[in-house]
Design a protein around this nucleic acid. Structure first.
Lengths: 336, 336
DNA sequence: ATGATTGTTGGGAGCGCTCCCAATAAAGCA
DNA sequence: TGCTTTATTGGGAGCGCTCCCAACAATCAT
C-alpha cells in the first residue's frame, strides 16, 4: 500500500501540513524541521499521489504533447523524434511529465475530450501540421494553456515556429546565386502550413531574381521519400537544372530518381533539401539543406508553455526562430 | 469551469450517484432514467475528472508504455513504431489511454518512482530490451500489474514474446538448405535478450547441419544500419557465402557494404534479415527475412495487461508467438 | 512589562468521484 | 390484506492532497 502524507507525518513527528510544505518547497518551514522531514521522505521513498494533488490543487505536473500525424509519418520523418526528445528532456528538467498522444488527424471525439476535459493535463503542446486541425480549434475554445509548434493561419494562439518562408527563400536564392536558371521545387502538402510557407519562400526568391514561376517546375509531394522520388521523375520531364526539395526525406527520394537516370548531382542538377536531418550527411553527395534547430523549437515550446501555465491570461506569445542554410556538396560551385 | 457529476445530476433531476451509475454502466438503473441522464451527458459533453475517479476508485484508465531505449534507436528501428501503434490502438479500443515513456536505459530514479508510485497508472507495458533493466526489477518488486514485451531471463514475470530462437533457426536453416556452407551472422547486442536468442537460433541451425560455428563468421552489431555496414566489412575478410543479419536495419547496412565491393546479392552472397519491416521490400534486391507480427505482439501485450488488471493475483502469464520466414529474392535459389 | 509582529505549526474544509448502505416504492406471495 | 422481496434511488463517508486560517511561541518595539 502506498504511503500517504499522514504516514510520513507520523514518522517525522510533524503534521501532514508541514510535510506538504516541505515537499512543495514552501519557505515557511524551520530548517531543522525541513531536514528531518526530508530525511524521512528520502528514507521511505515517498511519492505523492498525483491524482490527489490534482484534485486538491488543480495541477498535475503533466503536460500533453499531441502530434497529429500518422505513426508512420512520425517515425519516418526525423523531425519528430528530435522534437519529442527536446520536449521530453525539457519537461523532465522542470519536474513535468509528458503524456504523448500520437493521433491520426481524424481524432475520435473521445480523445479530444479526454485531452481537454479530463483534468489531467496542466497544458498541451501541439505540433500542428494541418491547416485546419480540429484539436487546435478545440483547445482555443477551452481555456487550457497550450502552445502550437508551427504558426496558425487564422487563430491568434500562442506558438513557436521557424521561419519557413525565410528558410525556403534562402535555399532557392542559393541555387539562383550559383547561376541555376531552371529551378524547380518539390513542395510539401498544401494543407500543411510548412508546405505552404516553404512554397511561398520559393516563389519570393524567384521573384527577387525576376524569374517567373512556371507551374511545370512545381510538383506537390507529401513529405515521404516516395513522393520525392515520384516528384523528381515528373520534374525531369521539364529539364530543371536545380531543385529545392521541401524536406530532406523527399530529397532522398529525389536523388534516388536522379541516380536511376544516371544524372549527376550537382553537375547535371543541383539539389537543396530542408531539415538538416541525419540523412543529409549520409546522402551521396552530402546534401545542402536548411537547418531548422528542431531541438530549440521543442525547448522553446515547452518554456513558453510553462510560462503560460504559471502566468495565465497574459497576451498570446509568438516566437519565431531563424533557420540557416547549411552548404554541403549537392549544389556545387557557381556556374559561369 | 469543468462540469461535475453534481451539475449533471441537477440538470437531469437525479442524484450524483445515479449519474455515476449511468457513466459506469451499472445495471441497476431504470431504463428511462438512464436515457434521460445519457441525453444530458451527451448534450453537455461531460467528461469525468480522472483525478477524482482515480482517488475514489483506485483506477485511472491509463496505462504506461515504457520503451527503455534512446529516442534515436526507437525511431530508427521500424519495430517500435509498429509496437507503439498496436498498443495505442488496442488501448483506445478498450477505453484506456496510453502514457508513453521513451526512456534512456539509465533512468532517473525519479522517473521510475513516478511510474510506479505516482498512482496514476493502472498498469505498465515494458518493451524490455536490456537483460538487466532496472525498471523490470522495480516493477517486479512493486505489485503493479505489468507485462513485458520480450521474455525475461531470470524473473518469473508476465510476458509476451516472439520466439526469436525459432525465427533465427528458420532463417539460418533456409540458407543452409539452399546449399550455402559458409554462413556468417551479424548479431544483435549481447546485452539484449533478442540479440542473444537470435544468435542462439543461428547456432542451433548450424548444429542441425553438423556445421561448426566458427568465431570468425560471427560479428556483433548494435541493431543500427551503420553497425550492419561495419559488420559486413569485417565478415568479408573471411569469405562467407551467406549471412544471417539479426535485423533488417542492419541488413540494409550490410547490403550497402556489399554494393560498395561490387558483390552481388544473392549470387555472390545470400542475405537474410529479421523483422520484415518496410525496408525489406524496398531493398535491392528485396530481402528475405523473418516476419514477427509486431502488431500482434503489441495487441497481445495489452490484452494480457487488461486481463491482469481486471483479475490480479492470477499466476504469471506467458504468451509466445511464432515468427515466420518470408522468402523474397536476397537468398536466390538452391546452389547445386 | 505590554502589545504588536513575525515565524512556525496543526487541523478543518473540500476538490470530484466511487462505494456502500439505507430509504423508498413497487411488486410478489401467503 | 399484511408482510417479504426486489428494483431503484439518494446521500454519507472518504480517497490523499492543498489551501486557508487559527494557534502558539518567540521576538520586537514601545
Amino acid at each position: 500500500m502506498p504511503l500517504t502524507l499522514e504516514d510520513i507525518a507520523k514518522v517525522a513527528g510533524v503534521s501532514r501540513s508541514t510535510v506538504s510544505r516541505v515537499i512543495n518547497g514552501d519557505e515557511n518551514v524551520n530548517a531543522a524541521t525541513r531536514a528531518k522531514v526530508d530525511e524521512v521522505l528520502k528514507r521511505l521513498n515517498f511519492q505523492p499521489n498525483i491524482a490527489a494533488r490534482s484534485l486538491a490543487a488543480g495541477r498535475t505536473g503533466i503536460v500533453g504533447l499531441v502530434i497529429p500525424a500518422g505513426v508512420n509519418t512520425i517515425f519516418t520523418d526525423p523531425y519528430f523524434p528530435q522534437l519529442i526528445q527536446a520536449v521530453t528532456t525539457t519537461c523532465n528538467a522542470n519536474d513535468y511529465s509528458v503524456m504523448l498522444w500520437l493521433a491520426e488527424p481524424t481524432y475520435e471525439r473521445r480523445t479530444i475530450r479526454q485531452i481537454l476535459h479530463g483534468g489531467l493535463l496542466d497544458g498541451v503542446i501541439v505540433s500542428s501540421m494541418l491547416v485546419d486541425d480540429p484539436i487546435v480549434q478545440a483547445l482555443y475554445d477551452s481555456h487550457k494553456p497550450f502552445v502550437l509548434i508551427g504558426r496558425h493561419p487564422t487563430l491568434d494562439v500562442n506558438y513557436v515556429d521557424v521561419d519557413n518562408v525565410y528558410g525556403a527563400r534562402q535555399a532557392t536564392q542559393h541555387l539562383l546565386q550559383l547561376g541555376r536558371r531552371r529551378v524547380g521545387t518539390i513542395t510539401g502538402p498544401r494543407n500543411m502550413i510548412a508546405g505552404i510557407d516553404r512554397y511561398q519562400g520559393y516563389r519570393e526568391a524567384l521573384r527577387c531574381f525576376n524569374q517567373s514561376c512556371s507551374d511545370e517546375l512545381v510538383v506537390e509531394g507529401d513529405f515521404s521519400e516516395k513522393s520525392g522520388y515520384r516528384g523528381m521523375q515528373q520534374l525531369l520531364l521539364h529539364r530543371p537544372d536545380a531543385v529545392f526539395v521541401a524536406t530532406d526525406t523527399m530529397a532522398m527520394g529525389a536523388m534516388r530518381a536522379l541516380r536511376e537516370r544516371n544524372l549527376r548531382v550537382p553537375d547535371d542538377i543541383a539539389v537543396v533539401g530542408y531539415d538538416d536531418g541525419p540523412a543529409a550527411t549520409q546522402l551521396e553527395p552530402p546534401l545542402t539543406t536548411i537547418r531548422q534547430f528542431t531541438t530549440k523549437l521543442g525547448v522553446a515550446a515547452m518554456e513558453n508553455l510553462m510560462e503560460i501555465i504559471r502566468n495565465p491570461g497574459s497576451g498570446s506569445r509568438h516566437q519565431v526562430l531563424q533557420p540557416e542554410l547549411v552548404i554541403r556538396v549537392s549544389c556545387g560551385s557557381p556556374i559561369s
